[in-house]
Nucleic acid binder design. Structure first.
Lengths: 340, 340
DNA sequence: GATTAGCACTCACTCAGAACGAGTGCTAAG
DNA sequence: CTTAGCACTCGTTCTGAGTGAGTGCTAATC
C-alpha cells in the first residue's frame, strides 16, 4: 500500500519535474517542500513509488521522473483543478465575446486556448444539431455539376458538390431551387433530408432523378456536417516543447495535419459536458501519439450538437493549469453563450 | 571576374551541399563531377568564389558551403528548371482535376505542392475577380446583428457579419433580402456595391439606413475578400528540415500561423503569371525569415483575380525541383482549369 | 599563363581516462 | 518509523592525444 505521504511525494516529484525538466532527487524535495522529514525518509517513500511504477529513474543513480502511470495518479487523485485567475477569466470573456459568426468564434477560441496553456490547441467543429434550413442555393458549375449551398438559421453555411447523372439547364435548376426551398425550408436538418425523399413522387418526373441526387447530397451534408473538421493553433508551442518528446514531434505534427487520427481520439473521449478528460502518454499509443497527452472537454454551442476542444502536448505538462484552462473555455462556450 | 569553370564549380558545390548537407571540399568535387582537372585547380577556383562571397567556409579548413549570394547566382544563372517527370505531371492532373469547389481545390493544391517538394506549402486565397453575385442571403442572428452571405456564380460563398444601428424584424429583413437580390444579383462584385449605394434613394426610407450598412458590408466583402487568407500544408516537412535552420524553426512556424507576415512577403513577389520568383535567406530578413527561402508563382483561376502559391523552406533546398513543381502547379491551375 | 604535385598546416572531431558530484541504497542506531 | 552515515553508481565535464579531411602556398610542368 502506498502511504499518504508517499503520494504527497509523488505530487512533489510531478510538480518539480514539470517545472524543471530535470529528474528530481530526495534532497531537492526536502529543500523545496516542507515535509518535515529527512531526505532519507523521502528516499524510502520514493522506493515505494518506484515499486508501484509510479516513478522511474532514467539512470541507476539520478533523480526520479514520473511514469505515465504516475501522471495518471497525479491527475486522478492529486491535482485540484484550480480555477483560472480573474484576469484570465476576463480575457476569455472579452476575447470570445466579440466574435461574430461561428467560424470566427472557433478561430478565436483555439487561439485563446493555445495562448492560455502554451500548448497546441485543437477545436472540433460542432455539427448542426437542431439547426433549421434557412435557404438552399444551387449553382451550376457545369451542366452535370451542381454546387449545393445550405444556409441554416444559426448562420452556418455549408457547401457540397453534387455530380448529376444527366445535365440540367438553368431553367430546370431554377425550378428545383424553388422546390427545394419549399420542401426543406424551415425544417431541422435531419427532417429536411427525409422530407425531400418523401416528396420525390410529387415532382415532375423529369426532375425526380436530379432531385434525388440533391436529396442524397443534402442528407449527407446534414449528417457528415463539419464534425470531421478541426481548427488548430499554437503549433509553435509544440516546437518549443520539442525536447520533451524523446522521439520526434514529427509524428505529432503529422497526426495534426491528418486530422483523422485526432478526430478518432477525440471520439473516444468523454462527452460529459462538465468533465475534463485526460489521456496520458501510452494511453494514446494506438494513435501513434504514445509520448503525448491530450486534455479535452466537451462543449455545446446553442443550436449545435456537442463537440470537443482541447490541447495536445508532451506528457510532461502542467496538467492542473491545462485542465483549468480547457474547462473554463469549454464552459464559457457552453454556458455564457447559451444564455443569449 | 569569375571564370566559366568557377561558376560550374559553384553549381557543383550547391548541388553537392544540398544533397549531402555537408561542406564540400575540392577533392570530393573532382570525384563526383567530371571536371577533368585536379583538385588543386578546383581549389584555385574556390578561392575565387570565396573572394566573391559566393561560398564560405564554416571553419578555417573545412569544405565550403554556398552563401545566400551563391544560391542567388545559382538560381539566376546556373539552374535550368527541369520540367517535372511525366508521372508527376500526371499526378497533378488526376489529383487536382477531381476537385469540386474552390475550397477543396485549394486544399488539394497545397497538399500536392507539399508532397511534390517536401517543403511547407502555402496557397493564398484568390479574390473574386470578375465573378458575379448569384445570391445574397441575410440571416438575423440577433435583432441588430445580420449575417450577410454572398454567393457568386463561380461558386464561392462568403459570409460577413453586419452590426446594424437599429433592430430589424424578420419581415423587414425579408423585404431587404428581396431588394438586395434585385439590385445586386447578376452584377460583378465591384459593381454590385456601387449599385446598392446608388439605389439607396429609391428605397423605403425606414430601410435606407439598414440597407446602407448592408451595402457597406458587401462592398467591404467584395474588396477585402479572402485575399487575406492562406492555406498551409506540410508543416511536418519543416520539422524534418529543422537541422538546416541554424536558429530555430520557431520563428518560421510563428510567421506561418500569423499569416500576415507571409501575406506581406507574397505581396512583394512578382505577379507575372509565368514567372517563378525566389527569395533567398537574408532577402527575407525584414520578415524575420532570414534563414528561409521562398519559392512562389502567381496563378489565376478563371473568374478570379491573380493570387500566389509557393513553398517555404530552408535556404539549403533543391531550388531546381522546387521551382519546377511550383511552376507546374501554378500553370496547371491557370491554364488547364481556364480551358474548361 | 594555366595547371598540377607536393607538403606543411589548421582545426573540428573522436576517444579514453581522470576528476567530480548528485543521488541512491543499505545498514545500523535512535 | 525515522534518521545519520557511508559506500557505490553513473552521468557529466574536462583534458589531451590522435586522426583526417581539407586548405593554402610554392615550385615545377605543360
Amino acid at each position: 500500500m502506498v502511504s499518504e505521504r508517499s503520494l504527497a511525494v509523488l505530487r512533489a516529484i510531478v510538480q518539480d519535474y514539470v517545472a524543471s525538466r530535470e529528474p528530481v532527487g530526495s534532497k531537492s524535495i526536502v529543500e523545496r517542500h516542507a515535509f518535515g522529514v529527512s531526505a532519507a525518509t523521502i528516499r524510502n517513500d520514493m522506493a515505494l513509488l518506484e515499486e508501484e511504477e509510479l516513478i522511474a529513474a532514467p539512470h541507476t543513480s539520478s533523480g526520479r521522473i514520473p511514469t505515465d502511470k504516475g501522471y495518471r495518479v497525479f491527475v486522478d487523485q492529486l491535482t485540484d483543478v484550480r480555477p483560472l485567475s480573474g484576469a484570465q477569466r476576463q480575457a476569455i470573456e472579452t476575447f470570445l465575446g466579440e466574435s461574430s459568426d461561428l467560424d470566427e468564434l472557433l478561430a478565436r477560441t483555439v487561439r485563446l486556448i493555445a495562448q492560455l496553456t502554451n500548448q497546441l490547441a485543437v477545436v472540433q467543429y460542432p455539427s448542426f444539431g437542431s439547426a433549421r434550413v434557412r435557404h438552399v442555393e444551387l449553382i451550376a458549375l457545369a451542366p452535370e455539376r451542381v454546387l449545393c449551398i445550405l444556409i441554416t438559421d444559426s448562420g452556418q453555411v455549408e457547401q457540397r458538390l453534387a455530380e448529376l447523372e444527366e445535365p440540367v439547364d438553368e431553367q430546370t435548376l431554377g425550378d428545383l431551387r424553388v422546390r427545394l426551398n419549399e420542401i426543406a425550408g424551415g425544417r431541422a436538418m435531419a427532417d429536411a433530408a427525409d422530407a425531400l425523399s418523401g416528396e420525390l413522387d410529387n415532382v415532375d418526373p423529369r426532375h425526380a432523378a436530379v432531385l434525388h441526387t440533391l436529396a442524397v447530397t443534402l442528407a449527407e451534408q446534414a449528417r457528415a456536417q463539419r464534425q470531421d473538421r478541426l481548427v488548430v493553433a499554437g503549433a509553435a508551442n509544440l516546437v518549443r516543447t520539442e525536447q520533451d518528446f524523446a522521439g520526434s514531434i514529427l509524428g505529432v505534427i503529422e497526426a495534426i495535419e491528418e486530422q483523422v487520427v485526432l478526430l478518432k481520439l477525440f471520439g473516444e473521449m468523454a462527452t460529459d459536458e462538465h468533465a475534463v478528460t485526460v489521456r496520458i502518454g501510452r494511453e494514446n499509443a494506438s494513435f501513434g501519439l504514445g509520448e503525448t497527452s491530450v486534455v479535452s472537454s466537451a462543449f455545446a454551442i446553442p443550436g449545435r450538437d456537442i463537440s470537443r476542444l482541447g490541447i495536445v502536448g508532451p506528457t510532461r505538462m502542467d496538467y492542473s493549469h491545462s485542465m483549468a484552462a480547457v474547462r473554463a473555455v469549454a464552459r464559457y462556450l457552453s454556458r455564457t453563450l447559451g444564455e443569449n
